[in-house]
Simulated scan of single mutants.
Amino acid sequence: MRCPFCAHDDSQVKDSRPTEDNTAIRRRRQCSSCGARFTTFERVQLREITVVKSNDKAGEPRREPFDRSKIEQSATLACRKRGIEREKIDQLVSGVQRQVETSGEAEVSSRMIGELVMEGLRQLDSVAYIRFASVYRAFNEARDFEEFAGAVREISKG
């Protein structure tokens, strides 16, 4: 495993343990060159998934390999300063990844992935849900937030 600090190609595993939800192995590693310690995660990948991104301009939609880290980054940003445990975010991301991989499709739309993330955030934290929705659904005005937050409030009451 390449060291993220010095880019040396060799590191030693110092400790391995399963994550809390048993969907990955967490490994503590030490670089044999600079001595820096870092953490890696090993996860099962059922199949290669291609994400089909909608194209705003006329023409073919873009395709790119599924990248778990993009979901992780978006969910983490939405949950920032909300006091949500890292494990809960990892569980959300793992759940989305599992749903995508078990869908049986080789190509999955970015829209479907966005909806899965929104559903997970809705169950986790209403503020994080609204934050993610504001970017995902491209809110342009304060009214967009008000309407969406009102709908979230109604769902929470019911």
Rank of each mutant, 00 (worst) to 15 (best):
D10S: 09
R37L: 08
L46Y: 09
N55W: 04
D10W: 08
D125S: 07
F66T: 02
S54L: 08
V135D: 04
N140K: 15
S69D: 14
A106G: 10
E107D: 09
F145M: 09
S156R: 09
T40Y: 10
Q91M: 15
M1F: 11
V13F: 06
S156K: 10
E48V: 07
G150T: 05
S94T: 04
E20P: 03
M118F: 06
G158A: 14
T50R: 10
V51G: 01
A36Y: 02
D67Y: 08
R122H: 08
E141C: 13
G114P: 02
I89C: 03
P61F: 12
S32F: 05
V127A: 01
A75D: 00
A128P: 03
E147R: 11
C3E: 01
R27E: 02
G158C: 10
E115A: 10
A24M: 11
E105H: 07
K57Q: 12
A78T: 00
A75Q: 01
R47Q: 13
A24I: 05
F66M: 08
I71Y: 07
V44M: 09
K57H: 13
V52R: 15
T23E: 06
D56W: 06
K53M: 03
S33C: 13
F41V: 13
R68V: 06
R153E: 15
G59H: 10
R62S: 15
S16E: 11
Q91G: 13
V93K: 03
V96F: 11
A58G: 13
E20I: 02
F38T: 00
S110A: 14
G120I: 04
D90S: 15
V152T: 07
V44G: 06
G59A: 05
F145P: 01
R29Y: 04
D125L: 02
G95L: 03
I155H: 12
C79L: 04
F5R: 06
N140S: 12
R137W: 04
P18H: 11
H8V: 06
R98H: 14
R43Q: 06
R98V: 01
E105R: 14
V135N: 10
E119C: 01
M112R: 14
E101F: 06
P65K: 14
S69M: 09
E154L: 11
F5S: 11
L116S: 01
S16L: 12
A106T: 12
T50Y: 07
R27F: 04
A128M: 06
T19Y: 03
E64V: 12
P4D: 00
T76G: 04
T76P: 01
E141S: 14
V44E: 09
E85A: 15
R122T: 00
E101G: 05
S33A: 14
E119H: 08
S109G: 08
S110C: 10
E48W: 02
T39G: 03
E141W: 10
E141Y: 07
G120V: 03
A138H: 12
T39K: 12
A149W: 06
Q97S: 09
I130Y: 02
S32K: 13
A138V: 09
F148D: 05
F38P: 00
G158F: 05
F41C: 04
H8Y: 15
R153D: 14
L77T: 07
E48A: 09
K70N: 04
S103C: 06
T50V: 13
K88F: 00
Q12K: 15
I49V: 15
I113D: 01
